[in-house]
Amino acid sequence: MKWISLVPVLAVGGLLLFAAKDFPEWGDPQSPASSSPVSSHFINNTGVDTEVPNMVTAVLADYRGFDTMFETVVVFIAGVAVIAILKGSGRRRGGLRKDHEVEAEPDLIVTNTVRLVVPVIQIFAFYVLAHGHVSPGGGFQGGVVMGASFILLALAWDLDHALVRMSLPKCIIIAAAGIILYGGIGFLSMLLGGEFLDYAELEKVLPVSREMARYHAMLGVEIGVGFTVTSIMFALYANLSSEGRLKGGL
């Protein structure tokens, strides 16, 4: 009966292809998505409005910063939901032996390589985070790289080894701090007389112009995103890999 599921797949696929004949030409500069005043506004004014050379960052963190704030909240929710669902569920089925709880000595070559690599990964994460304004990168990417470095620790030794450096309460605190940083910057700009997330108003507290205020605020919110993504990445790994028991290696 599995073939039945092909029917909706083909139907939706056919529908999507059917519409494609009506698409604007590939790369057509006259197509609405390229020629609309909205896109041209982004292309022409990003540098003027925000002093940020990377247009993608400006659209992501400033023009549509409200979306990005809630994307960060989604990451936070994912972590909180997984912790909430798995918390205590390990104890309920405690009698069963888990394969991954077999004690094993960490491998010498692996641990020493990881010891060398982790600092490099973490520095690179900071670079990706901070360099988001001028090159591809930003909070999400930097946060993922940073979170991966902690996961690598847990893989090379075991979960406890990584949890000493990044415990679960610490994860929640850092993730919440990320949201507070992002939302707080938006809230501060509202208190200073603008709309929510109107970074330009931050010129009243920063010794810079309105455009540079937007520039610096974007870095601030990217750091907030980085906080949340880093800690939630690791919290997800720690919970899922140990079914919420938070011990043992994979």
Binding site: S36, V38, S189, E195, E201
Partner: peptide, 18 residues
């Protein structure tokens, strides 16, 4: 109507900012 981030609505079609 409240534009988050303090962007403009004057363009046609509107859509800069949320």
């Amino acid at each position: 109507s409240y534009i988050l981030g303090g962007w403009t609505l004057d363009l046609f079609p509107r859509g800069v900012g949320i």
